[in-house]
């Protein structure tokens, strides 16, 4: 059984079709990259996977650990081990980063039949995870993302991921807006979490991140459809040629179906 199987996924928002027939299979231990031009549907795919209900799945299915996710609420997906690192992490004033994470982790542990972590154990656990993303301890006690710089927000997402320990992590343009140092820190954090039991779906607009997080498979999403899949060398090809030559391909495919 594959960890994630997306079959012929069609997604609309307010009657506009954004994804039109995505097929994608991810196995445990793999890193898949999804690249594509702006507006190709990358972020939509990420949010649909996490269960955002402003998008309507009109056709197809998403199987996670063999289970259909159609009816699963976002929190149920999270508790089953799916994590989305947001492209634009949300600021939550008044809610402390560390206490929020404790509540989230305990909700997940409870779902898994594990005991809730007490304050001491949690703090030790969290400190260990913080070192993965070289996060300043001061950010722990601040409200979630409030007043964080762009880089701090992205690092905080990877930190949340490390704490919540998902089996599938979807990173939605976690590299965008990061300088090279911050990019390396984020990539190191991700690499240190790579394991047999965990898979990553790395969504990015640029090839650069993939120099640091080396993917097993690269997919190109254009106009809501995966038009090409290949090894890590595909990313380099895209860097050279841009997306133009594949956009023509997408139109051909649509025409062929019509």
């Amino acid at each position: 059984m594959s960890l994630l199987e997306i079959k012929n996924l069609h997604v609309s928002v307010e009657d506009a079709e954004i994804l039109n027939g995505v097929d994608l299979t991810v196995e445990k231990g793999q890193v898949h990259a999804i690249m594509g031009p702006n507006g190709s549907g990358k972020s939509t795919l990420a949010q649909v996977l996490a269960g955002r209900d402003t998008y309507e799945v009109t056709q197809g299915e998403i199987l996670f650990k063999g289970e259909d996710l159609a009816e699963a609420a976002p929190e149920e997906r999270a508790r089953e081990g799916l994590f989305l690192a947001f492209q634009y992490p949300v600021e939550i004033p008044g809610v402390s980063n560390v206490y929020f994470l404790k509540a989230a982790l305990n909700a997940i542990r409870k779902h898994r039949g594990q005991e809730e972590m007490d304050a001491m154990d949690f703090l030790n656990y969290v400190r260990e995870k913080m070192s993965l993303v070289k996060m300043d301890e001061a950010l722990l006690n601040r409200p979630v993302n409030e007043g964080f710089s762009g880089g701090e927000k992205k690092r905080n997402e990877i930190f949340h991921m490390a704490v919540l320990d998902p089996v599938l992590a979807v990173l939605d343009e976690t590299d965008s807006g990061l300088d090279i140092d911050a990019l390396k820190i984020v990539a190191d954090g991700v690499n240190s979490l790579r394991s047999e039991g965990r898979a990553f779906l790395v969504i990015t607009h640029y090839q650069r991140l993939l120099n640091y997080i080396v993917p097993d498979v690269v997919h190109v999403l254009v106009d809501g459809k995966i038009v090409r899949s290949g090894g890590k060398e595909l990313a380099l090809e895209l860097e050279d040629k841009g997306y133009g030559w594949l956009e023509g391909k997408a139109k051909e495919q649509v025409a062929a179906h019509a």
Binding site: E75, A78, V90, G94, V95, A107, L164
Partner: peptide, 28 residues
């Protein structure tokens, strides 16, 4: 709505997510 989704995507239930955001509104 996006903030509610953000909290839920971390495993917090819908009701609790809304309550957290309501508290956050009052927090200042």
């Amino acid at each position: 709505e996006l903030a509610v989704f953000y909290l839920r995507s971390r495993g917090i239930g819908e009701e609790a997510a809304k309550s957290l955001l309501t508290y956050a509104f009052a927090a200042d």
